[in-house]
Measured scan of single mutants.
Amino acid sequence: NNDALSPAIRRLLAEWNLDASAIKGTGVGGRLTREDVEKHLAKA
């Protein structure tokens, strides 16, 4: 759900053309954090 994404995370996902549903969020309530996105990018 994009409503739970911060503007910074939305921008990062758009910049790298990533799908938020493909990344497991570790923040409060399962929210994506910058670290989650960076770890996903490191694996790719």
Rank of each mutant, 00 (worst) to 15 (best):
D3Y: 04
L41D: 02
G25P: 08
I9F: 04
S6R: 04
V28W: 09
K24H: 09
A14E: 15
V37E: 00
R34G: 04
D36R: 01
A44W: 15
E35L: 11
I23L: 07
D36M: 02
E38Y: 15
L5S: 04
L12T: 01
A44L: 15
G30D: 04
A42K: 12
G27Q: 02
D19S: 08
G27D: 03
R11P: 01
K43Q: 13
H40N: 02
E35T: 09
L13H: 00
D3H: 11
R34Y: 15
S21H: 07
D19V: 08
A14N: 08
D3L: 11
K43F: 13
K43S: 12
K24E: 12
K24S: 09
T33C: 05
K39Y: 10
R11W: 13
N1H: 14
D19C: 11
D3V: 09
G25E: 02
H40C: 05
V37A: 02
G25I: 04
E38F: 15
T26S: 08
A8L: 11
V28T: 10
N17D: 11
G25H: 07
E35F: 09
R10W: 06
E35H: 09
R31G: 06
V28K: 11
R34S: 06
T26M: 04
L13A: 01
E38D: 06
I23M: 06
N2A: 13
A20K: 05
N2Q: 12
T33H: 00
T33N: 03
A4E: 14
A14G: 05
D36Q: 01
H40V: 10
R31F: 06
N17T: 03
A44F: 15
L32R: 01
D36W: 03
G29W: 05
A42Y: 12
R34D: 07
P7A: 14
G27Y: 03
N17R: 08
A8H: 08
G30S: 04
D19L: 09
A42F: 11
T33Y: 02
G29Y: 05
N2H: 14
A42L: 13
K24V: 15
S21Y: 08
T33K: 04
L18T: 03
R34I: 15
L5P: 04
L13F: 04
A20W: 07
K43V: 10
L5I: 13
V37H: 00
A8R: 07
E15R: 15
D19R: 05
G30K: 03
G29A: 09
E35D: 09
I23W: 04
N2F: 08
E15V: 11
A22W: 11
R10T: 07
D3M: 11
D19M: 08
E15M: 15
V28M: 10
D36G: 00
N1P: 14
L18W: 03
A4F: 15
H40L: 11
A22E: 15
K24P: 10
D19T: 08
E15Q: 14
T33E: 03
A20D: 05
N17Y: 05
A22P: 03
A20P: 14
A4M: 14
D36K: 01
A14I: 10
E35N: 08
R11Y: 09
N2E: 14
L12F: 06
D19Q: 07
I23E: 00
E38H: 08
G29I: 03
L41V: 10
S21P: 04
R10H: 06
N2T: 13
R11F: 10
A8S: 11
K24W: 08
L18F: 04
E38Q: 09
V37M: 03
T33A: 01
V28F: 13
S21G: 10
G25Y: 02
E15D: 10
G27S: 03
G29V: 03
L32Y: 03
A42E: 11
S21D: 10
K39N: 13
K43A: 14
T26A: 02
K24F: 09
E15G: 05
E38N: 06
E38S: 06
A8K: 06
R10V: 10
K43P: 05
G30V: 02
K24A: 10
E38I: 15
L41R: 05
L32D: 00
A22G: 06
G25V: 05
L32W: 04
A20Y: 06
N17S: 08
K43G: 10
I9W: 05
A8V: 08
A4C: 12
N2V: 13
R31S: 13
E38W: 15
R11G: 06
S21M: 09
T33R: 07
K39I: 09
T26L: 05
L32V: 09
S6D: 15
